[in-house]
Simulated assay, not measured.
Amino acid sequence: MLDDTDRRILRLYQADPSISSADLAERAGVSSGACWRRLEKMRSTGVINGVQAVIDWRALGYEVEVSLRVVLDKTIPNAFETFSAAARDVPEVLEIQSFLGRVDLRLSLIARDMAHYQKLYRERILTLPHIVDIEALMHVARIQGQGTLPI
């Protein structure tokens, strides 16, 4: 689906999404028009889903990151959908992942400090519907973050 030129463009774009299209084309060794057409094709086919700003939440005063492993009551119809919809309403929940296995979902959330986390946990998390079991894992360090894809 992707040729070597597409991969080269993706590698460069992934390394610096703010690069101008003219600079991207020059570094990729293609004309500006060809580069633009290839990017548009990759966007339209879903290879590129968008460009996002990565905000350092610590710079905004959030110091605590917690992963919550959640087991839901699977005997309740639509438990996943109901829980996920309610969890999306908690602004501090950054990510919701679903799994196959003993753990059904993982929530990644942030808090300003431990007091804020305890308040969130008691008032917002424990009140989410259909929880059977929940385990909190406090993040200590990020050893490898969102890296680049090996294109």
Rank of each mutant, 00 (worst) to 15 (best):
S67N: 04
R8T: 13
I125Y: 07
S67T: 02
Y62K: 12
V66Q: 10
P77R: 15
Y117L: 13
A136Y: 00
R142H: 09
A79C: 14
N49G: 08
V90E: 10
A111H: 05
G145E: 12
L72A: 02
T127R: 15
L72S: 03
I125E: 12
R38D: 08
V30N: 04
F83M: 00
I110M: 07
D104I: 04
A115P: 01
W57Q: 05
V90N: 10
V93C: 07
V140H: 04
H130K: 12
A87W: 11
V132E: 14
A87C: 11
R142E: 15
Y13N: 09
W36N: 11
L105C: 02
I110N: 01
A86F: 09
L109M: 13
G46K: 13
V93L: 12
L126S: 03
A86G: 06
D104P: 02
V71I: 13
Q144R: 14
D113A: 01
V71C: 03
A22P: 01
Q52E: 13
E81H: 02
F99P: 01
A111M: 13
E65M: 15
N49Q: 14
P17V: 13
T127Q: 11
L12T: 04
I48E: 07
E92L: 08
F83H: 02
E135D: 10
F99N: 06
E123C: 03
P91H: 12
V51P: 03
E40R: 15
E65G: 07
K119P: 00
F83W: 10
K74W: 02
E135A: 11
A87I: 13
I48L: 14
I110A: 03
D16W: 02
D23Y: 01
F83A: 00
S21Q: 15
Q146P: 08
T5C: 00
A111S: 12
D23R: 10
R106C: 00
V140K: 08
I143D: 07
D133I: 03
G61C: 08
L24W: 05
I9H: 02
W57A: 08
E40N: 15
L12E: 11
Q52K: 14
Q146M: 11
T45G: 02
S32I: 12
Y62E: 11
R38M: 07
I96V: 13
R69F: 12
Q14L: 09
L12M: 06
R58Q: 12
D104L: 10
Q14T: 13
A15Q: 15
K41F: 00
A53R: 12
L126F: 01
R37I: 13
L107W: 05
V64D: 05
G61W: 07
D113V: 10
L100T: 14
K74G: 01
K74A: 04
L100Q: 02
R142Y: 08
T127I: 06
D73C: 04
Q118P: 00
T5K: 11
I55Q: 09
T82P: 01
R8H: 04
Y13Q: 05
V47T: 14
V51F: 07
R106W: 00
S32Q: 13
A59F: 00
A141K: 15
R69E: 15
A22N: 13
P129L: 10
A115H: 06
P17Y: 07
Q118I: 06
Y13L: 15
G29P: 08
L128W: 08
Q14K: 10
L137V: 11
A15R: 15
G101V: 06
Q97P: 00
S108D: 02
N49F: 00
E40W: 05
L109P: 01
V51H: 01
